[in-house]
């Protein structure tokens, strides 16, 4: 579904964020993208829907060359790519329903969206999606009245309502507590399986990634250094991705405290467990 070839991004400051990345993601597969801060994970995801303009390389969504599109065609292409954000990026002062319906903006004429008169199919779809993510009781609440987990569910519903072929997911759990993080990851993987969506999940919590995702891609300094099953993340591989660290030392129970995992890096017993 998604085919990235030789993707390069050089910022105006001269920093090279991506240095020749190749990645293929078939429909129905969820890929976890891991790597240290500043490795270019965020840039890679944003290059796919061109929130960040790539410097070189091509990106194909199905048969469509995203990098060659005009502004208008790019907007059409963006409808097929749902995006989910770290800090949720909901429009705080709009209601939950408006936030979810904003997923249809690419399909709707301006005056309809301005008057909030979406088609019956769109509204029904929005209700169904909100029901699926478990928020049917919060339709008329303002987004800033929700908890973190609920907000991320709204973010997911917004992306789903676009009717996407591909989900671009940027650190979906970084602002959530460990339990909610797992619920959100479970929801995302279930939804992708239900709807045969391809997805790239940018995630810094290696343990969580291994728990839910089968395929992991490791990015370091703008270069792919690992692409394989999550079982293959041996201490050597992790060193290749993150640099030198004692990856074999264990302490505590991973289930009890995912926060510790963030601070100290992934733990081998989990790596083997999945």
């Amino acid at each position: 579904m998604l085919r990235i070839e030789g993707l390069v991004k050089r910022y105006r400051t001269g920093d090279i964020a991506l240095d020749g990345v190749d990645l293929v993601v078939p429909a129905g597969e969820v890929v976890g993208l891991i790597g240290p801060s500043g490795a270019g994970k965020s840039t890679l995801i944003r290059c796919v829907n061109r929130l960040v303009e790539p410097t070189a390389g091509t990106i194909h969504l199905g048969e469509l060359d995203v990098t060659a599109l005009s502004r208008r065609d790019l907007r059409r292409a963006r409808r097929r790519m749902g995006m989910i954000f770290q800090e949720f990026a909901l429009v705080e002062r709009l209601t939950v329903m408006e936030n979810v319906l904003s997923g249809r903006l690419g399909y709707v004429a301006f005056w309809r969206s301005f008057l909030r008169r979406f088609s019956a199919a769109d509204v029904r779809g929005a209700f169904a999606t909100l029901d699926r993510v478990g928020l049917l009781d919060h339709v008329d609440k303002r987004a800033d009245a929700l908890s973190g987990g609920q907000r991320q569910r709204v973010g997911i519903a917004r992306a789903l309502l676009q009717g996407p072929d591909l989900l671009l997911i940027d650190e979906p759990t970084a602002s959530l507590d460990p339990k909610t993080s797992r619920q959100i990851m479970r929801l995302i993987t279930e939804l992708c399986a239900e709807r045969q969506l391809a997805a790239v999940v940018n995630i810094h919590d290696v343990a969580l990634a291994q728990l839910f995702l089968k395929r992991i891609v490791g990015l370091r300094a703008g270069v792919l250094v690992y692409d394989g099953p999550s079982e293959g993340l041996t201490p050597e591989v992790l060193t290749r991705i993150y640099g030198e660290e004692d990856w074999t030392r264990t302490h505590g129970d991973a289930d009890a405290d995912d926060d510790a995992a963030r601070a100290t890096g992934p733990r081998p017993e989990l790596i083997r467990a999945v």
């Binding site: 829907n49 929130l51 907007r75 059409r76 292409a77 963006r78 409808r79 790519m81 749902g82 995006m83 954000f85 800090e87 990026a89 909901l90 429009v91 705080e92 002062r93 709009l94 408006e98 904003s102 997923g103 249809r104 903006l105 690419g106 399909y107 709707v108 301006f110 969206s113 301005f114 973010g155 917004r158 676009q162 671009l168």
Partner: peptide, 28 residues
């Protein structure tokens, strides 16, 4: 907050829709 704008742009919204959905609610 630019993140809210980015999210609405990412849905494929036209510029006028971005103003209506992402910017106007924030400055109201």
């Amino acid at each position: 907050d630019h993140a809210q704008v980015e999210a609405v742009v990412a849905t494929g919204a036209a510029p006028a829709q971005v103003i209506d959905y992402a910017i106007v609610p924030q400055i109201l």
